[in-house]
Design a protein around this nucleic acid. Structure first.
Length: 726
DNA sequence: AACTGTGGCGACTAGA
DNA sequence: TCTAGTCGCCACAGTT
């Protein structure tokens, strides 16, 4: 364990007492002691087994006999489990694929980014290990209540690779600049001697060693830059020793690059946490987080790096540019750090893994920890066929403009349905099984059964999450909103909310260990039935419903009747529904999931319309937004028409900024795999021909040039077109 | 040759 | 993590 102690010393604690293990689940009709003997008989073939213990656990809620098999070498577990599986009386082996490091954290309830107490003995420092103290653990670490954040040393860096032709290639092209900025206000720019980056690499490595950061941040470092630096170091036949243990950065789980003893964080991985961030560039993320306005940011396109480097005059600009980028990255880190560490604490994945782990894995690691606490075994991951199921219900909107519309929302609908009906992977009663004594809840439409008692795994976990969030929000009310404490609590409740919301989707994910399609399907079915029943209640009261989506109803405002409706829903359905907001005026088209409403504070709520989509040019989005404003706020269609006319004039006269004409789209597959000639695909093909590497997830920006013919025949990458031809 | 209708692809958002 | 839903564009067939 790499950590920081209360005196801000960097420490390494080695706990050699921990033994990795896995479980063998025993057949029900077998005598556990006999199976134990049979397992022990295998010992000569499996010499690394150190101990076998019999125990009781639960698997999908069913009590089972298990043998916990301790194995000296974690790498041998998979192989050993294979042998043990064939022992008579062993049904299956479980938890064989839980990494040793995670096993340690879970079993000792050690939480990353949190304070713990542990009895230690000081040890001699280990060669090549860069810490203040090395200890061995004499006790299991114990979590303590302490929220202070220690003084962390953070280093942000931004490299610039010279590209002689297309994308830079590490075996050919040097790293010409590395800008580094620290949270102690040090700024450094390392440069190559023309095209020789040997010294640059050495001095950067030396600098990192000297500053000894706890956290190294960058942008696109996991996918790009670390790999580049690694391969570059190999090409130059130098070493890249920048960690605290004398090893190279290495690729680890989820495609993350690990730096031993430090947390290596790629801020790009956190771009998904910001839904309003459409084009995931460093510039946009910097702007959206309020670190620096777009207009104040220097722009040098990747295409131009080599031109700037080759030209002595412009080279200075490139250096300043790199430094600015490193500063922006540090700024982004500071805005996101608290959230990242709260998420890490909640889920239990280390800070450097949490960003790269997809939502499904975050949810899963949270569940694995909770399962361990209640003696529930974690299922193995299994291949599942993909079969879709029916989800939420969307009501047809009444097109046109409506005045005073109130939105009623069910509070955490799916989680609360799962709690209320005890829907869980372990409470599901398959058709082949008889109805248990505890009786069952039967889902509407789909007919799946879930036993009512005892509380299922999901009910336990979701109840805990929901009440945790309520508690945090209670405390927040008493805290000064501008304080650090408030930020901390807010980040904490957001992290809890994300995991709570993902729980339903998780059970329907075919990659999930706890995948049970009936769980997801039944939850959605109950959701549909709830909303339909609510519509009935509203109709009985004579309320006018103009729209609804999954867990919400849009109703013409009528305070008394709405009050009655809320009460009836609580009494008859057992769920909480509440007024979320009221629109002064709202516009629906004939389409579902698309509308624009005017809120009491005068702001517009744009839902689903082009305004909020990332695949429209800025000029189109801004125009739609303004038109909606004129219609909803000023009630004037004429003004809107006039505005559009003047905009078209501006467009023809090239008065609209070039940047606003670019259309961005994401590549969802390798360029060769596309079946159609879509504009963004054609753009990608052009870039590829010029030597630029494009992979899945890359965003391409293009403009449509003047002329006639198909759009894909007229596209150009935005950096390669001139305004005149657009 | 120019238009119209339709099915499929692809990207993205709304809601949990 | 899931499903529901929209919309633009392309490709192709059929009509004017």
């Amino acid at each position: 364990m790499w950590g920081i102690d209360e005196k801000d010393r960097r420490v390494l604690i080695v706990d050699s007492s921990f033994q990795p293990y896995f479980y063998a689940v025993l057949e029900e009709n077998e005598d556990p002691k006999q199976v134990y003997e049979r397992i022990m008989n295998e010992k000569p073939r499996l010499p690394l087994i150190v101990n076998v213990e019999l125990d009781r656990r639960k698997f999908f809620g069913e009590p089972v006999n298990v043998a916990r098999i301790y194995c000296q070498d974690p790498d041998a577990i998979q192989k050993y489990a294979k042998v043990i599986r064939s022992v008579r009386g062993v049904k299956e082996c479980l938890e064989t694929d839980i990494r040793y490091s995670m096993r340690y954290l879970i079993d000792n309830d050690v939480t990353p980014c949190a304070w713990h107490e542990v009895d230690v003995k000081e040890e001699e420092s280990i060669r090549g290990v860069q810490v203040d103290k090395v200890y061995s653990a004499c006790s299991a670490p114990e979590r303590i209540q302490k929220d202070d954040i220690p003084q962390l040393r953070v280093l942000s860096f931004f490299p610039i690779c010279y590209a002689s032709k297309g994308s830079p290639k590490p075996e050919r092209d040097p790293v010409v600049i590395i800008a580094a900025v620290t949270n102690t206000d040090e700024k450094k720019v390392f440069t190559a001697k023309e095209y020789d980056d040997r010294d640059l690499m050495h001095s950067f490595i030396q600098y990192v060693k000297n500053f000894d950061p706890d956290i190294i941040v960058g942008y696109q470092t996991n996918q790009q830059y670390w790999q580049y630096l690694i391969e570059r170091a190999v090409t130059l036949e130098t070493s890249l020793l920048i960690d605290r243990a004398g090893t190279w950065p290495h690729r680890s789980v989820y495609g993350h690059i690990s730096i031993t003893g430090r947390a290596s964080i790629d801020m790009f991985d956190f771009a998904d946490e910001l839904p309003e961030l459409k084009v995931k560039s460093l510039e946009n993320m910097t702007a959206i987080l309020g670190v620096k306005n777009l207009k104040e940011q220097r722009i040098i396109h990747e295409l131009e790096y080599s031109d700037f480097w080759d030209d002595e005059e412009k080279r200075k600009e490139l250096l300043e540019f790199a430094l600015e980028k490193a500063e922006c990255i540090l700024g982004i880190f500071e805005k996101m750090f608290i959230y990242a560490s709260e998420l890490s604490k909640l889920v239990g994945l280390p800070l450097d893994h949490i960003g790269k782990a997809a939502v499904g894995f975050r949810t899963e690691w949270y569940l694995i920890r909770e399962a361990h606490k209640i003696g529930e075994l974690t299922p193995e991951r299994m291949e599942q066929p993909y079969i879709p199921y029916a989800g939420g219900m969307v009501l047809k909107p009444k097109p046109g403009i409506h005045e005073n519309v109130c939105v009623l929302d069910f509070k955490s609908m799916y989680p609360n349905i799962m709690i209320e009906k005890n829907i869980s992977p372990d409470t599901y009663v398959p058709p082949s099984k008889p109805e248990p004594d505890s009786r069952v809840n039967v889902a509407p439409e789909v007919g799946y059964r879930f036993r009512r008692e005892p509380p299922g795994f999901y009910k336990i976990v979701l109840t805990k999450l929901i009440s945790a969030r309520d508690e945090i929000r209670q405390i927040m009310r008493k805290v000064d909103p501008s304080s650090l404490d408030y930020q901390l609590l807010d980040a904490r409740q957001k992290a809890v909310k994300v995991i709570t919301n993902a729980a339903y989707g998780y059970t329907g994910w075919i990659g999930a260990r706890w995948f049970r399609k009936p769980v997801a399907e039944a939850t959605a079915a109950w959701g549909r039935s709830m909303i339909m029943k609510s519509v009935e209640i509203a109709k009985e009261l004579g309320l006018d419903i103009v729209y609804g989506d999954t867990d919400s109803l849009f109703i013409k405002y009528d305070p008394q009747k709405i009050e009655t409706m809320i009460r009836r829903i609580r009494e008859q359905l057992g769920l909480e529904i509440r007024p979320e907001k009221t629109y002064r005026r709202i516009l629906f088209t004939e389409a579902k999931k698309r509308y624009c409403g005017l809120l009491p504070d005068g702001s517009l709520d744009n839902v689903g319309l082009e305004v909020v989509r990332g695949d429209w040019a800025n000029v189109a989005k801004a125009t739609q937004e303004h038109v909606l404003e004129l219609i909803l706020k000023e009630n004037s269609v004429e003004k809107a028409v006039e505005f559009v006319k003047s905009l078209i004039r501006d467009l023809r006269e090239h008065k609209v900024p070039y940047r606003d004409l670019i259309i961005w789209k994401t590549l969802t597959r390798p360029v060769e795999k596309y079946k159609v000639n879509a504009p963004h695909v054609e753009t990608a093909r052009i870039l590829k021909r010029l030597g630029w590497d494009l992979t899945v997830g890359d965003q391409v920006g293009y403009v449509i040039t003047q002329g006639s013919g198909r759009l894909y025949e007229r596209v150009k990458p935005y950096a390669l077109a001139s305004y005149k031809e657009v």
